[in-house]
Write a protein that binds this DNA or RNA. Sequence first.
DNA 1: CCTTGTGCGTACGCTATCGCACATAGTAAG
DNA 2: CTTACTATGTGCGATAGCGTACGCACAAGG
Lengths: 247, 247
Amino acid sequence: MPKIDALEKSDAMQSNHLLASLSDDVRERVLPQLEYVSLPLGKVLYESGDTLRYVYFPTDAIISLLYVMEDGSSAEISVVGNEGVVGVALFMGGESTTSRAIVQSAGGAFRLPGQWIKDEFNRHGEMMNLLLRYTQSLITQMAQTAVCNRHHSIDQQLCRWLLLSLDRLPGNQLTMTQELIANMLGVRREGVTQAAGKLQRLGIINYNRGHITVLDRPYLEKLCCECYAVVKKEAERLLPYLHRVNT
Amino acid sequence: MPKIDALEKSDAMQSNHLLASLSDDVRERVLPQLEYVSLPLGKVLYESGDTLRYVYFPTDAIISLLYVMEDGSSAEISVVGNEGVVGVALFMGGESTTSRAIVQSAGGAFRLPGQWIKDEFNRHGEMMNLLLRYTQSLITQMAQTAVCNRHHSIDQQLCRWLLLSLDRLPGNQLTMTQELIANMLGVRREGVTQAAGKLQRLGIINYNRGHITVLDRPYLEKLCCECYAVVKKEAERLLPYLHRVNT
DNA sequence: CCTTGTGCGTACGCTATCGCACATAGTAAG
DNA sequence: CTTACTATGTGCGATAGCGTACGCACAAGG
C-alpha cells in the first residue's frame, strides 16, 4: 500500500469526481481521514451481509456490485468507478447489503471509515446532498440493468458493459478476461466469446488474452442498446458539476 | 375522491406501514397535510422525466415502477404498496426518475405535496431516517429484479410477482389480467398463460378472467426462486418496526 | 526444451422463450 | 338473442442462450 504525502493526496483526490466536487471547507475536513489503498483485481471489499467498515472512493479502480446466488452463479447489479462511491448502505442506514463488492479492474481508491462518513453525512450539508444524488444515479443504473437483463441480447449488453467500464478508466484499454465479463453479465463465457468475436470482426475492439482495446467507440455506442445512454444522461443530470471536472 | 374526516384519516394512516410507524409528534405534523386519493387501475402517477409533484403512501393500492423502452416494451423495476412510498426521487434530490409509476392494483393512497416531504426530510429527523432505510430496501428489490430477470424462468418470476403483490394486499385475491402481468414482467402474454396454467393445475391458484385467488401460498413460496425471500428478509431487517404493526 | 495452465475459439444438441396466428370462452352492450 | 369485445388457451416454427465437450494458442516456469 503506497504511502503518499498530503500534497499528492490532495492531487489524487481530484481523480474521484465526488471528492473533486467538494468545497474547500469539506475537503479540508475529509482529507486527513482519507486513506489511499491499492485494490488488486478480484479483491472483495465486502460480502453479502457484511457490516460495511469503509466507504471507497475509487480513483482508477472499478468495483462491481454483484449478487451471488445460492447455486454460485452471479449477476452484476451496478458498477462504480471514479464517478462514485462504494458503500452507500452505510449512510442509507442499512450498514450492509445483499450484494458483494468486488474489484473488477485493479487500481486505487480512497477509503473512509464508516463512522466517519456517517458523521459527515449527519451534518446534513453538502456531503449529504452529494451522496444522496449519487445514490439516485446508482438506483437508475440498477434499474436499467434490470431492463437490459430482460430485453437485450448478449451482444448489446457487452457493448453497454464495455462503455460503462471505459467511462471509468483513463485510456481505451481494459484488462479483463472473457470469463470475468461473463460472470458480471451472468452469462456463459462462450456467449461473451461469440459477442466479442463479432465486435472484433467489425474492427471495434481488439481482444488479446485478457486485454481489450477499444478502437471505435462511436460504433460501439451505435451498436449498444439505449440502456447505456439512459444511465449516462441521468448521471449527468443528477451530478452536473462532476462532468465539468476533468473533461 | 372520497372525503374522510380527521378520525377516519388517522385510522386509515395505520394501513401504510411507514406512516403507521411515525411517532405521535411527526404524525401530528403530517396528518393535516395528507390527502387521501383513490387510485384507479392503470392511472399513471408520473411519467419518465416528469417532475414529481407528490409522494404517495399507498394504503391498499399497489404501484408498479416500470421502465418503458423506446420500442414500447416495458419491464417492472420494483413494486410499492402499503409497506412503502412512491416518489423517493423527491427527497433523494433528483426530482424525477427515468421510470413510470403506474397503478397496478386499484386502491387508496395518501399523498403529500413534494415540497412538504422535502421540508420534513430536511428536518433530518425520524422521517429522514425512515425514508432512507425504505429507499435502501427499494434498492434491494431493484437489484433482485435484475438478478431474477437474468437467471430465472417465467414460472419462477410469476411466483415472485404473485407473492410480492399478495404481501401488499389485504386478502388472497388479486385483480390482474395476464396481459398486465406480462407487461410487468416484460414477457409475452402467452408466457404468463403457460406459467399460470401450471400453477392452476397444481391447485396453487385459481385464475378467472382477471381475478386470481391464491389457494396454497406455502406451495407458491416453495416454487419461487430465492429472490422473493431475499427481498422480504432484507425489508424486515431494514424496517423491523413495520412488521410489528398490523401483523 | 518441455510441461502446465490459462484464455479463447468452436461445435452440437437442448430448452426456454419469442413472434405469430388462431381458437375458445366468458362478458357486456345493444 | 345477438354482437362485439376482452381474456385466455393453444399450436408451430424460429432463435437465443445454455450445458457440455474439445481443440488450440500463448505464456510462465522448470
